[in-house]
Write a protein that binds this DNA or RNA. Structure first.
Lengths: 347, 347
DNA sequence: TTGTACGCGTTATCAA
DNA sequence: TTGATAACGCGTACAA
């Protein structure tokens, strides 16, 4: 931003034309209605002066800012950076800036940031925040404000969303554990205030049932958050019961890491005495000690699709699918999930 | 953003006053020059209508957008999310939004984004991009545009920056290795187009010299980037030499991970046959297999200080220190760095 | 083909 | 104490 900005008026003066002519030359569809020679003069002047239209003034006039807002529940969750990167890349490639807000899973912060973003006239919203209260979304729906849910589902058919196939993902994880001989399988679930948390728990339950296993209440521990610390606490509760499971399904990878810590603290050998499966496949999950067996979620693709979908919505392009459910894939790394040692008493 | 935005004019009408009065009530310093009863009417109307000033119009008028721009070299480098989070928190606490740009270490993208951010009238810039060409910064300096370098040094005394003490950090790492009996110590350096890369290599060299060890050319391999892949390739070159080092200092943790991979591929036992020390202490470095011995860089603090410094600069507050060099700390995790097995032929 | 006039939503200044 | 006016920088009808 130079000391004194070069405005459209400066360019107009330099090219000896009226500002509106400059605008027409620079934004005009096709080569319509402007003399080639005039156009050349204007273009030259603009270039020479280094003219760049103020996005502020432009936004005020056009009611478009070419800015996307993104609500992230927790940027330090390694699942998100690849998504953000994909969104940023996709957005910039189409001329959109990205404004980031880290909600820290606080619904009050979410509400605040939503206001802030609205005040800033972002053209649309990517919501990857877990605890988004439905009330918040209701407001956006009412105003017909363009938004896309990322890594998060919705009951409302009208909402656009891009999410992993949580049910199938959990089914893959369950299939793996059952194949390894596990019968007493527990779940460290995510917060049930989030669709991710709910869908993964439900998915686990359904998959277990299809294997004729019942998920008893004492085999489920609900974590307060998707963090390692919360996961650790939830896992502790689960593993200290009189008859702990031989394997646990975790709602995400961070919770799996917390579970791992809890297991170690209780002197449970992983995977000999306890198998653990994560969800998400965060970057470098393979380099952990031990490498995490987990369900892969296509982070980059989620970001690309969500951004593409949002931009299509903003620009009025047709939307083929309003709801993208992406395939997950079990990644067996062998070291956090192993065959069950003994026949369990259950089932 | 409601269907039709509530403007200051709507509020004025509802309160039966002139728009300028509304503005005065809402922004006016102190309770100056406005009748309590008028003020009450206006406040009530604003609240009732849910009025929120347009930041666009406001920015146009005030030449301030309360927006910070941030250039990140690579958001998927785990060192950055904690920094971004700290910046975001600090900024929002003072009323600033954060616009993120992922430069992917491409100087062309950097230049582009700089333009974009300038077009958007960000009030200041946080630059955590490694390859920022000095030409780019020169432009900002010339325009006296507020910016702060993060995790990156500068030769120019005039520039504001917040960075770790790379020299001391490397000295700590060298001290550790020497204490463990290593004499033939190599370096997988970062790109020498970055101050981080240069300072850490120089720091290593100086520290080795102070231990009466010379860093020979064949013991240095320069990585093309700060990523694991680039680090892997650089480490391969270093470790395949006829007389490889017994220990390596890596320019950052991702390079250390690449080095680890290279060592494994060459059937070198870590740490028995090769000790590795990283730099940065990325989140969960302790959970890696093996846990990484590394030099801790205070990521959160860097973010907080950088944001604070930038906002002070923007708001014209006095800046006590223009250059913050933060303490590093060696984190010995024992499993990537161990005593040298045999007396080496060198030194 | 180009220029004129106006409005986008605010706020600062000046007048009343 | 409040209202009127202008200006921030741009784009778009409409007129010339």
């Amino acid at each position: 931003m130079p000391e004194s900005r070069v405005t459209i008026i400066d360019v107009a003066r330099a090219a000896s034309v009226h500002p509106s002519t400059v605008s027409r030359v620079l934004n005009g569809r096709a080569e319509l209605s402007v003399l080639p020679e005039t156009r050349a003069r204007v273009v030259a002047a603009a270039k020479r002066l280094g003219y760049r239209p103020s996005q502020l003034a432009r936004g005020l006039r056009l009611h478009r800012t070419f800015t996307l807002g993104m609500l992230i529940s927790n940027i330090t969750n390694p699942l998100f950076p690849p998504i953000i990167k994909a969104v940023d890349d996709t957005g910039h490639a189409r001329g959109y800036n990205l404004v980031l807000c880290n909600t820290e899973d606080k619904s009050e912060r979410e509400a605040t940031y939503l206001q802030v973003l609205s005040d800033s006239h972002v053209d649309g919203l990517l919501i990857a925040s877990s605890f988004t209260a439905d009330a918040t979304l209701a407001g956006l729906r009412r105003d017909r404000f363009p938004f896309v849910l990322v890594n998060r589902g919705t009951r409302r058919g009208e909402d656009l969303c891009v999410q992993p196939d949580n049910a199938r993902g959990m089914a893959q994880a369950v299939g793996h554990l059952v194949e390894l001989g596990h019968r007493r399988i527990g779940v460290v679930a995510g917060p049930q205030t989030t669709t991710t948390g709910v869908e993964r728990l439900d998915g686990a339950r359904a998959a277990l049932r299809s294997h004729r296993l019942r998920l008893e209440d004492e085999l489920v521990s609900v974590s307060e958050g998707f963090s390692d610390d919360a996961g650790y606490r939830a896992a502790r509760r689960l593993l200290r019961t009189s008859e702990p499971p031989t394997a646990v399904l975790c709602a995400n990878d961070l919770i799996a890491l917390g579970t791992l810590r809890a297991a170690r603290e209780l002197d449970l050998d992983v995977p000999a005495e306890l198998s653990i499966v994560g969800f998400g496949d965060i970057p470098r999950a393979d380099l952990l000690g031990p490498p995490l067996t987990t369900v892969h979620v296509p982070q980059h693709e989620m970001g690309v699709r969500a951004a593409t979908m949002l931009i299509a919505l903003i620009e009025g392009e047709p939307i083929e699918r309003r709801r993208e459910v992406l395939e997950t894939q079990l990644v067996v790394r062998g070291s956090t999930a192993a065959p069950a040692q003994v026949a369990t008493k259950t089932a």
